[in-house]
Nucleic acid binder design. Structure first.
Lengths: 243, 243
DNA sequence: TGTGTTATATCTTATATAAGTTATATGTTA
DNA sequence: TAACATATAACTTATATAAGATATAACACA
């Protein structure tokens, strides 16, 4: 029990939310799975259905779970048609965002420099994987990505397993490593294409690009990926909404 | 009443939400005002407090109203410390986002070209105001803005009234024209500084800039502003979050 | 192929208690 | 008396429970 007004006071529904999140962390239910019904959870946690409901409502608002009337509540996943573009904010100026073609350039194992280690909350020099890839829309290269993940959490990752997988990278992370990305922060700047970008994106040096830095988090706000994307925005835009 | 399963079926709380929104459109309560208490609204709309609560919950989630325990529920406003940076996604690489200094360059009355008219849902050639300004952080010019609003909704806008106002532009729009911005969509590209940008931002031509196109909406998803910002991202980033 | 059953989330109402805010009344003290 | 502190009351939203009706989906079975 919790004493109201005590410094550590949390409403019941918030405690339930934490308990559900802990089960997600523990892997009791994986991405795509149905979690127990509201009534079952209410029984399990010895609270009313309404309290469970409020907890699930908040998790649904954060896109951690998906509610489907009549079916149940499911752990959010990056697999599936709609989910694959959930974290992809680049779309064609004229129309809709289709998932791009991904071409793997390299997968290397490296030691995390200070900056990367700090962002991923690792110690300096921790082992990380660095994935380089090229995203193309309709055959035209648009985004050059450099993706860093802690090796400890992605054991067994190499070029072959990535190539063998068809689908988005986050969907791959889910199915092979049980790591679900639920939130990301991006910092965007405008930069000029250097020799490397020019080669891969088949553009001239000095063309302006978006440099999109992202830190992605899994359950419990644990950072598990840092990436830098260089994006050619000739016929594409980075789209976002605010309120 | 509403027949469930009919094509136009809306849950009660959603209908209440629409009614509250209509009162906002009608100006029954302006930005910063308290709306009636949940119990008062429940009486007025002849539904239970819980239903009103759910409607207000959603409006609060959309940042249309702000709930304050013990005080009441207030119409969201761009006035005030925290609110002024609500739509400002540019922040210093090292730290927090302070509200920048604004230097007005010009205010002109123009005829909306096709593109602008479409975005603002006006007829071609409709009268619009065009505001040009420069935003500076700590004395350093960073963003060159070109802002377009329909003249019909912003009667009496001119250089003098803008200059006379201290505070954010959206706060000004609220207090002088009763127009509250509640949502915005942005499309971002990387471009090169041209002569005009170079002059105002005090940079060389060819420096990469973010080009941020925004359409902002008021109650009922009515577009009332289109702006293009050109932003120098040497020491600043465009920051965004997704989930 | 239907048709009913069951399980799920969703919606609506009702009630009660907790907790934050403000104004007012009531002291208490200088 | 005047200034200040404290208690109380009245209002607000926030939290929690309960119960019933409805919408949607899946499945068993005739």
């Amino acid at each position: 029990m919790n004493i109201p007004s005590s410094p550590s006071f949390r409403p019941l529904y918030d405690q339930i939310k934490i308990l559900i999140t802990q089960s997600l962390i523990a892997g009791e239910w994986g991405p795509g799975d149905a979690i127990p019904s509201e009534i079952d959870l209410a029984t399990r946690f010895k609270v009313s259905q309404g309290t469970v409901r409020k907890a699930i409502d908040e998790l649904a608002a954060e896109n951690i779970v998906i509610r489907r009337q009549g079916k149940g509540t499911f752990v959010a996943s990056h697999s599936g048609e709609r989910s694959s573009t959930r974290f992809l904010r680049i779309s064609r100026d004229d129309g809709l965002a289709e998932y791009p073609q991904s071409d793997l350039l390299s997968v290397t194992r490296e030691r995390a420099p200070e900056n990367t280690a700090a962002l991923l909350e690792l110690r300096n020099g921790a082992s990380i994987f660095c994935i380089k890839r090229l995203l193309s829309f309709e055959g035209k290269a648009q985004i050059l990505d450099e993706i860093h993940v802690p090796a400890a959490s992605f054991k067994g990752l190499d070029e072959h397993v990535i190539r063998a997988y068809t689908g988005s990278l986050y969907s791959f992370f889910e199915s092979h490593f049980g790591i679900a990305m639920i939130r990301a922060e991006e910092h965007i700047k405008a930069v000029l294409a250097g020799p490397d970008e020019a080669t891969h994106l088949k553009i001239a040096e000095g063309i302006p690009l978006l440099r999109i830095d992202r830190v992605a988090f899994t359950y419990g706000d644990r950072p598990v990926e840092w990436r830098r994307g260089l994006c050619h925005t000739n016929q594409f835009s980075y789209v976002t909404e605010m309120s």
